[in-house]
Amino acid sequence: MTIPLTPTSARQPQQRGRLQSMTGKTIKAAIGPLVLGLPLALWQICFFVLPLGFLGVVTFWQVRNYRLQPAFVLDNWERMLGSNAFQRAFVHTFSVAAIATVLALVLAWPAAQTIALRLSPRARDRWIAFLILPIFSSYILKVYAWQVILSPQGIINSLLTAAGVSSLNLLGGALSLQIGYMTLTLPAVTLILTFALLGLDRDIIDAARNLGCKGPTLITSVLIPAIRPGIIFAGSTAFLLAFGDYGSPVFLTGSNPPTLSILIVDTIKSGSQWPRASVIGVTMLALPAVGFLIVTMVKWLLKRTRA
């Protein structure tokens, strides 16, 4: 943050960042942003930027006699990136998160389309309110509830037994993991898609129908292209949530195989191997950044080749 300039109004973007000589009035005008901005900037730097930065530094430190010591060694990176356990966990976490992303988008889409395009405004607002609730309410409890529902003596199996069907082994597999991930991601993904569809000009849809477009074609050739940024946002949200999740893999698959978040917790809680845990963390943070970079580059290349 540097010297704040004159106030601007949201409606007139051309007024941005105007230069001005340093008069008494300018200094007075700078007091507001400083009073409001300095504490905020300091807070975010101290308790967000610095801790994450420190994590990056720790990856080069060493643990000697169970104590963390400053150093500059690449040993942690070499060890972690070269370790089979890490590589397996990485591939596993990435693939289950990718599956969860696709699953969440596919499952949320019809619901979002119904809420945004079929319901009355009143009903729509109620559904939106309903979908916001689970995002902020006790994820860990919901995972536990699924454990209860899916466990060998749980609710589903007792229903099956009562119906004369032999009980199924539901807990501890890919299915239960994805159920957990859907609990985590579906409300948010449905909401984002709903808002994206609501932002769409209804005339576009009516015009498409008027031109003879209907059913699946309407979705693939009008709705999806029209709200692509919304879909990308919903997808990245789902991926980030699933990729970093700890609750579902621990309680619904019994950490078998472990995901990166589990690896982090285990590395710290059992071995105090801070630098190695930090390597995992930094790698996880780098992944979306690298992904973003690749997407931008591919887009740029496509533009170049087309031109």
């Binding site: 943050m1 540097t2 010297i3 704040p4 300039l5 004159t6 106030p7 601007t8 941005r16 960042g17 507001g32 942003p33 901005g37 905020l40 900037a41 975010q44 730097i45 967000f48 930027v49 801790p51 994450l52 420190f54 994590l55 980030l240 990729f243 970093g244 999740d245 700890y246 990166l260 978040s261 982090i264 917790v265 710290i268 845990a277 930090s278 963390g281 996880m284 943070l285």
Partner: peptide, 27 residues
């Protein structure tokens, strides 16, 4: 207001929920 570095500041405020909690917790 508009000032140099505002964008960076707003990103620093907006982004924490996107960081996996395991990493944030560790950091």
């Amino acid at each position: 207001y508009h000032f140099f570095g505002k964008r960076a500041m707003m990103i620093a405020v907006a982004i924490p929920p996107a960081v996996p909690v395991a990493i944030l917790g560790m950091a």
